[in-house]
Amino acid sequence: MTTTTPEVPATATAPVPTAASVAHQKLTSPWASFAAIIIATLWTIPTIGLFISSFRPEEDVKTSGWWTWFSSPNVTLENYHEVLTGSDTKLATYFVNSIVITIPSVLIPITLATLAAYAFAWMKFPGRDFLFVAVFAMQIVPIQVTMIPLLKLYVDPPFGLPQLAGKFWTIWLSHSIFALPLAIYLLHNFMKEVPGELIEAARVDGAGHVRIFTKIMLPLMAPAIAAFGIFQFLWVWNDLLVALVFGGGNLDLSPLTVRLAELSGTRDNDWQILSAGAFVSLIVPLVVFLSLQRYFVRGLLAGSVKG
């Protein structure tokens, strides 16, 4: 959540010894490498095990460990076919729900937060600093604290507004609201770094705030917006609590995570289903991770206190 969040350096730096590398050399390499390999193994084996299982026939999954697959490698796509289209699981539907939930839940808060961040950084109006601190302070509110009253607002909205319960709007709005304080704060920090002369020059030329925002700020903010966008995308895609509470158990509105959590309770011995199901939900974050690692790490670190 800091603007100067250390990114993962893409390239190795010059071979100047750092404290760590010295410590590393002196830790006598065999043991150090051994420890590193142990950690790396512990961190990958569980995922590999589930991944292999998702391609094994039901009979094999239920009667033998996935490590025996190497001696009797049976491969099938039946599990994926079953979880995606089977009448009991139909994850394809929930995959669609996840997409329908996620895209607006990213676009809406980013748009509103960028506008507000610009205002807090470059517009002058009474009460600006107070309002900004108030928005900033809202980051401490855990989303749990807001859930029940927010749900009541959706079911029984004030000022004669239309009722939102039972629609995707409840989930879109909730995700948007929960994203705003952090998004405004982060984008504000980036905007503040833009040199003031740039804005002043544009103003002298007669450009209004709207034009400065669209013509100067948005292009400069693109990397920051992308980083936050990726973070928010994964946050929404991986979320369980918000979808559970604001979807109200309505299967038409439930994303993959809700359905998987449910299957984990009702089909808890059918590991051929659970393993394939898990990978259907993991594929999107994994692709995002592998293709956008640079932005991804930055975004994830930036938003690490959210929730």
């Binding site: 993962v8 190795a12 071979p15 750092t18 760590a20 590398s21 410590a23 590393h24 830790l27 150090a32 490498s33 420890a35 590193a36 950690i39 790396a40 961190w43 990958t44 569980p46 995922t47 095990g49 589930l50 994964l234 895609w237 991986n238 979320d239 369980l240 995570t257 998987l260 959590a261 984990s264 659970l274 393993s275 199901g277 898990a278 939900s281 993991l282 974050p285 994994l286 995002v288 991770f289 690692q293 991804f296 790490v297 994830l300």
Partner: peptide, 30 residues
């Protein structure tokens, strides 16, 4: 510290970082 300056540092980091990308529901199932 252990993987600092190792030849496969980037890859070794990705292995440990990967669980951050997936949902806690997915991690729990794993």
């Amino acid at each position: 510290v252990l993987i600092d300056k190792a030849k496969i540092e980037k890859f070794a980091k990705a292995l440990i970082f990967l669980p951050m990308a997936i949902s806690l529901v997915g991690a729990s199932l794993i």
